[in-house]
């Protein structure tokens, strides 16, 4: 079994504060306040100064949220977190009863489409593919995907597409060979991955954003 310690992707900054807030069911302002007050979970900052959380930090915050649900105070929860000697294992997902989850893949490179579509399908997702922004918007309107994956360098404007697909509430995963994390998150993306992507990291990011991993399922169940 692969543990978090062996996986560098576990520490890679990926998620915007908004995405983390929605996955955990807490306000972004609360996350910022905790960071200022306790300094325990301090995410990396992008070049433009935006907070970008790793899977590890997401899991740490989930631990805090779990503690709060159990009646612990925020300061005690952070102390408990700081006391934990090692990082928790990466969650293992086996997605028991998922029903028809559709992912829109907007990507211009046919080789990337071929491989990424394959990896998504092996995870059990349905995949619709668009090779350019206009087609992507049309597909989005037609099928209402649960998640859109947008290559930012698409001719016709990947970044703009990112913004248009994000306004309707569905999460957007942005990707590019250039480090455009800031621009992507500013445009409304929930997460950003730099290309070429590591397949395992790619599918686990998708899983998190869809809220279908054990990690996010559990946090929803406990917070509400």
């Amino acid at each position: 079994m692969v543990t978090a310690g062996e996986s560098s992707s576990w520490y890679q900054p990926i998620y915007s504060i908004g995405a983390v807030a929605s996955m955990l069911g807490v306000e972004a302002t609360t996350l910022r306040a905790w960071e200022d007050r306790y300094g325990v979970v301090v995410p990396a900052r992008s070049a433009g100064g935006q907070r970008v959380y790793s899977r590890n930090e997401l899991e740490q915050l989930r631990f805090v949220v779990d503690q709060l649900t159990g009646g612990t105070t925020p300061s005690a929860a952070h102390r408990l977190l700081a006391d934990r000697s090692h990082d928790v294992d990466a969650p293992v997902s086996n997605d028991p009863d998922r029903v028809r989850v559709v992912v829109l893949l907007a990507e211009r490179d046919r080789y990337a489409v071929d491989l990424l579509e394959y990896f998504l399908r092996t995870e059990g997702y349905e995949v619709v593919v668009a090779l350019e922004p206009t087609a992507a918007e049309q597909l989005f309107a037609d099928v209402r995907p649960h998640l859109s994956i947008v290559e930012l360098m698409m001719s016709g404007g990947g970044l703009e597409l990112c913004g248009r697909l994000a306004v309707d509430g569905a999460p957007v995963l942005a990707m590019s060979a250039l480090d455009l994390a800031d621009q992507a998150i500013a445009a409304g993306a929930s997460a950003f991955l730099v290309k070429p992507v590591v397949p395992l990291l790619f599918v686990s990011t998708v899983r998190d954003l869809l809220g279908s991993s054990a990690l996010t399922q559990r946090s929803k169940a406990t917070v509400r």
């Binding site: 490179d109 080789y111 990337a112 491989l115 070429p196 992507v197």
Partner: peptide, 12 residues
């Protein structure tokens, strides 16, 4: 060209 395309599409 095919091979290079494939090998550039993911981190390998």
């Amino acid at each position: 060209h095919d091979l290079a395309g494939m090998l550039s599409a993911i981190a390998v």
